[in-house]
Simulated scan of single mutants.
Amino acid sequence: MALYTKKKNKGGNPLLISVTVLGSSGPIRFVVNEEQLVAAVIDTALKSYAREGRLPVLGSDLNGFLLYCPEVESDALSPWERIGSVGERKFSLCKKPKSDGMEGNNGRRSSEAIYRKGTSGIWKAWIRKSLTLKISSH
């Protein structure tokens, strides 16, 4: 009978995280170390996304994306921040905007506004469509 010895985990605890890519169907789930940097998580998410053959095609340049934590009202996470420091396990990934109006706050507000506008636009369209449905009388 072999004895089970627990290995010491020098790099932190593993976390199962969920990353939703804006415009894609369903989240991507994978395990990361809580000490991993946000940049490494973005890279892993892009590789998993491409491996699964999801659409729209995003590419592999991790510098062109921002990671948000929708549960916590904040700006995009810094690429040098540790993923475990956020305290959440659900994230959203979206492309950085191509506009020139990104000066001042490293583009954080611009991309956050685009993310918020994209999700609220869907709800507004659904509400507008629901209100315009005509109820037929018998």
Rank of each mutant, 00 (worst) to 15 (best):
D100Y: 05
K129P: 02
P70D: 07
T44D: 15
V38Q: 10
F30L: 08
V31R: 10
T44M: 09
I127H: 12
G12Q: 05
V19C: 10
L3T: 12
E103K: 13
F91S: 06
E71G: 13
V32H: 01
G121W: 01
Y115I: 01
D75Y: 02
L77Y: 05
I122Y: 05
L62H: 15
T119G: 02
I135H: 13
L58W: 00
E88Y: 01
L46H: 09
N9S: 02
T5A: 10
R128L: 09
S18T: 11
E52C: 10
I127F: 13
F30H: 07
T132Q: 14
S25N: 07
E73Y: 07
L62M: 11
A76E: 06
S120D: 12
N106C: 09
A76F: 03
V72I: 13
P79T: 06
K98S: 07
T44K: 14
Y68E: 00
S24I: 05
T20G: 06
D75L: 11
T44G: 12
S74W: 08
R108T: 05
W126V: 13
F65Q: 04
L62Q: 14
K47F: 14
S120K: 11
R109Y: 05
A50D: 14
I83Q: 08
S120W: 11
R109D: 03
K7S: 04
E35R: 12
N105Q: 07
E71N: 15
P97H: 09
S48I: 08
R116K: 15
Y115K: 00
G12W: 05
G104L: 06
K124E: 14
A76K: 00
I135W: 12
N63I: 01
G23K: 08
D100F: 08
C94K: 00
K47D: 15
A2C: 06
K6Y: 00
L62G: 04
L15P: 02
C94D: 00
I135M: 14
D61E: 15
G87R: 08
L16M: 15
K134M: 04
L131D: 04
E112R: 07
K8F: 07
R109T: 04
A76Y: 06
T119R: 08
P97A: 12
D100T: 12
Y4P: 01
L3I: 14
S48G: 01
D43P: 02
K7T: 03
V31E: 15
N33F: 00
P14G: 02
R51H: 15
G12P: 01
S99M: 00
A45N: 05
I42F: 11
E73N: 14
K6N: 01
G104H: 03
R82G: 03
M102P: 00
P79V: 06
G26Y: 12
L3M: 11
I17F: 08
F30A: 09
E34P: 06
P79F: 09
E112P: 03
Y68P: 03
W123S: 13
S137Y: 15
R89P: 02
F65H: 07
C69W: 02
L66W: 08
G53N: 05
I135L: 13
S18V: 09
S99L: 05
F65G: 01
L15F: 06
G104A: 09
V38N: 07
P27N: 14
G101A: 05
S137Q: 12
L16S: 09
K7G: 03
Y68N: 09
L55H: 14
